[in-house]
């Protein structure tokens, strides 16, 4: 039986954050693979045609609903359970989480193709901003810590984010929400584990009304870069976004 992200050999059992159990099995024949997923009472089957088919599980930002073909939003709103205070002209390194689901891809060589999505989190959306000009984001409540090891728990559904929090103002700031664009971020996973991590985010409070979010590049050391579903790819990758304060 396989365990964690990476190539699926024959069977895997996934227990999500909500303690829901999903069992995925694959049966390989000469020129086809029969894929079966059972979640609760729901069972789905897919026949995948082709030789030397490889089925892989990889983390996908939890912004797709009801399936992998529909990306609901490109933003995730991280609501910190405990707000964090930064002194004037100070910086802080911290860690938090972002929600991920498990994408199932098939490939017969180079080209990979998403065939299924296993939800590991309850999808919830929120409006960030006013009704007039706000944006819809995936809502995620998370803890924030300065100790990375807190998040080494080997359970699917979360990815670890390194945060650089910087206050360029001459007054204290309290950060309780961070709005990030997932299309500008990368995900890496460690094969045979449920550990996933994203590119570093640097949050800089630049004025009393605006903060910049910069997305650093990532090198997946001892890890594999996760494939992005085609709908999540942008022709131009943004390395920086802005978010207004006060919501």
């Amino acid at each position: 039986m396989s365990k964690g992200y990476g190539e699926l050999k024959d069977k895997i059992e996934i227990t999500t954050q909500q303690q829901q159990k999903t069992v995925i099995t694959i049966a390989k024949n000469n020129n086809k693979v029969i894929y079966t997923r059972k979640t609760g009472n729901m069972e789905i089957h897919r026949i995948i045609g082709g030789k030397d088919i490889k089925v892989t599980l990889q983390p996908v930002f939890s912004v797709f609903y009801p399936d992998i073909s529909k990306q609901y939003t490109e933003y995730i709103l991280i609501k910190l359970r405990s707000p964090i205070d930064i002194a004037p002209q100070e910086t802080l390194k911290a860690y938090t989480t972002m929600p991920v689901d498990i994408g199932v891809t098939v490939s017969n060589g180079e080209k990979q193709y998403f065939i299924d999505l296993v939800f590991c989190n309850n999808m919830k959306l929120a409006l960030y901003g006013s009704v007039n000009e706000g944006i819809i984001a995936r809502y995620h409540e998370a803890n924030i810590t300065t100790n990375k090891n807190v998040y080494e728990a080997n359970k699917p559904g979360l990815s670890i984010v390194e945060l650089g929090l910087s206050n360029r103002l001459n007054e204290w700031v309290t950060i309780s929400k961070i709005l990030v664009n997932v299309n500008a971020m990368k995900l890496c996973y460690k094969p045979s584990t449920w550990q996933a991590y994203t590119s570093k985010i640097v949050f800089t409070a630049i004025t009393r009304l605006t903060a910049n979010i910069a997305y650093h590049s990532i090198s997946c050391v001892n890890a594999v870069e996760a494939l992005k579903p085609h709908t999540a790819k942008l022709p131009v990758i943004k390395h920086k976004t802005s978010m207004p304060w006060g919501y």
Binding site: N122, L125, A126, Y128, V131, Y247
Partner: peptide, 10 residues
């Protein structure tokens, strides 16, 4: 609260 498309905020 369980419905995925009902917004948390507002």
């Amino acid at each position: 609260e369980k419905h995925p498309l009902v917004l948390v905020e507002p």
